[in-house]
Amino acid sequence: MGIRVSNLSKKYGPQYAVNDISFEIQTGEIVGFLGPNGAGKSTTMRMLTCYVSPDTGSATVAGSDIRTEPEQVRRKIGYLPENNPLYEDMSIVAYLQLTAELQKVPKKEIRPRIREMIALCGLTREQHKNIGELSKGYRQRVGLAQALIHDPKVLILDEPTTGLDPNQIIEIRELIKKIGREKTVILSSHILKAVEMTCDRILIINRGELVADDSTENLRRRAKGADRIRLQIRTELNAQDLKALLEDLPTVAEVTPDAGLNQYILDSKPDADIRADVFHFCADKKMVLTEMTTLESSLEDIFRELTISQTES
């Protein structure tokens, strides 16, 4: 009863914005929809919210078909569109009231429901302000509050954390986690960090095609080989010998010289902890390790690999 998408496609002109995408999301799952700009995330979400129609393929949202029962679908979803459009001239309460009425929340429940949303989304101190006066982080909370007002089964959030500062990102992420426990949530981003911490599962989309669909944990495991560190060593050895020695380490897959003197970038083999090896190697040889930095999170690499290799081909 979550979301079921089968062979969904949508063209703009001659170009596919979304090309034959299929996936399923179960109730209770929080799924990240990851891809670079222009990958087709928003287009997919707009098809799920019945904002645009697919050319081919079908999808059901909480059991309702997006082609034949758009009104049912819209009752069951809470949607936060990209860039979080809001009526700037309205007060928070008036706006939530409007949304509640449009979402057919029973009249008696509207007031308590608004109070509940204001508390849940941390808007209590701002509740009498006009939306136009709010900072970006608070606007995002209002966007979430309107999406949640009718207690929807499915939440569709398009780039909910883009443009926020790091503290706001953490707050919004915590909020999504909290409300996502009994709901089906799909949230998109072009930044891995934004979905990695929140989502149980990640779908990666590139140029309209789904290139990965796996649990965050599995993806991380799969990506282990791409662990990458930079190190600098103070030693009497010449550069060639040092490089050869490093390459001989059992966990090292590749050694690339970097800008500084005796500075290298090391890629590890899959499932191997490269740092312990390097440390012991230096200690044995009585060399001084002056720098050792993890360059990027492993998932970042698989994301880049999946999305770049396709772009080049």
Binding site: R46, Y51, Q72, Y79, P85, L102, Q103, Q146
Partner: peptide, 14 residues
């Protein structure tokens, strides 16, 4: 212009 049309038309009304 402001994008609120997308919000409005994705609410359950015709």
């Amino acid at each position: 212009r402001s994008g609120t049309l997308e919000l409005l038309v994705t609410k359950p009304l015709s």
